[in-house]
Each structure stands twice: as structure tokens, then as C-alpha cells.
Amino acid sequence: MADIITEIITEIGIWIAAFLTIAIVSVVYRDNPLFKFAEHTYVGAAAGYSFAVAIGNIRGYGIEYLYPTLKDPWYIVPLIIGVLMYFRYHRTLYWLFRYGIAIVVGTSVTAAFVRSIEADVLTQLRSTISILFTKGDAITILGNVVLVVAFITSLYYFIFTFPSLHAGSLGYIPRIGRWFMMIAFGYSFATTVVTRIDLFVGRLNFLLFEWLKLPA
């Protein structure tokens, strides 16, 4: 009996998922009530999901330090500041939310940029310079030289932005950089398109083989 109930619940779930999938794809025809229904379902579901996960995280990273055993009494501070952040909607006491946002911004911006120094600047520079000393056949060596030229010219394009450095005798450097970037954008745009097509095929597979149960 329990198996039959589980099967029915699963089948209802598959039908709901199929309905929502078709409703979202129906926007290809044009904006329609079915799509609007699915769109509002999506926004509501995503908001509710994020809220539940946030409450879970507040419990895991904050309340657990205070209750049931007191591990670190200082964790009462972010909990109070977190509640104060909701004064953002108050007409005169809105500034209280700034204390919480100041901690988040100060900590996360600094953590992001100090990690960025290592991961995005030093590591990239190190691996680009070391590639010049890599041994290999003619194609590999040519490729490595092209990589370094692409790196330097595209870096030049963004860093040296004075008008005089983008024109005249030096103007060819950012022009070459732009060529390399166009090639890179062409490749990454195509990769994104292919990934999305892959996802779409996944949804079609769901409709055909899980919902309609066609033989594979």
C-alpha cells in the first residue's frame, strides 16, 4: 500500500514538473497566462526556498553557538545586528541597517580582493610567464607565444586606457588585443549556446522519457 502511495506521489510530481516545463517553454510563442503562472510560481518558490535556507544557515552559523550549549557568547552581536538590519524599512531609523551591511561589506570586499591578488593576479602572471619556458613541438611553442601576446595585448587594452596610448604608434597593441578578445568571445559565446542547448535537450528528455515514458 505504501509503495502505491509513493508511486502516486512521484507520478503527481512528474506531471507537475512536466506542466511547469511546458508552461515556461510556452514563452517562445509569446507572453501568455500559462507562462505568467509558471513565472510567478518560480519567483515564489525561489524566494521561499532562499528564505528557508537562510533561516537554516542562521541557525547553523549563529544560534548553534548560543543554544543549547553556550559555545561563544559573542555570537549574540551579529544576531542583534541582523535583526536591526530590518529597520531599513523604517522612515527615520533606517540607518540602523548600515551597521550590519558595514560588517558584510568590510569583511567580504577585503576577503575577495586579498584572495584576488593571489588567485587572479599572481597565479595568472606566474603561469603566463612560465609557459614561455615550456618545451614542446613547434605548434605548442607557437601557441604559447600567441597566448602570451594575447595576454599582454588584452591586458594593455584595459589597463592603459589613456587616449594617447590607444592611438598613434602604440595604437596597434590594443587593436591586436581586441582581435584576440573577439576570438575568445566568439568561442565562449558558442560554448554558452551549446551548454544551453544541452540543458534544453535535458528538459526534452525529461518530457519524452520520464513524463510520456516513450521507449528510449
Binding site: 580582493f113 594575447a150 595576454f151 594593455y156 584576440f180 575568445a184
Partner: peptide, 19 residues
């Protein structure tokens, strides 16, 4: 090669901007 080189340039430039 060229795509990696160009993206590394973009990545370093963006990181310097973020810093």
C-alpha cells in the same frame, strides 16, 4: 591558446579593478 591568453588578460584587469 588565444582564448586562454585573452581571458587571462581580462581576468587580471578585472581583478585589479576589484582591488
Amino acid at each position: 591558446y588565444p582564448a586562454v591568453g585573452a581571458y587571462r588578460g581580462i581576468q587580471v584587469s578585472a581583478a585589479l579593478g576589484a582591488i
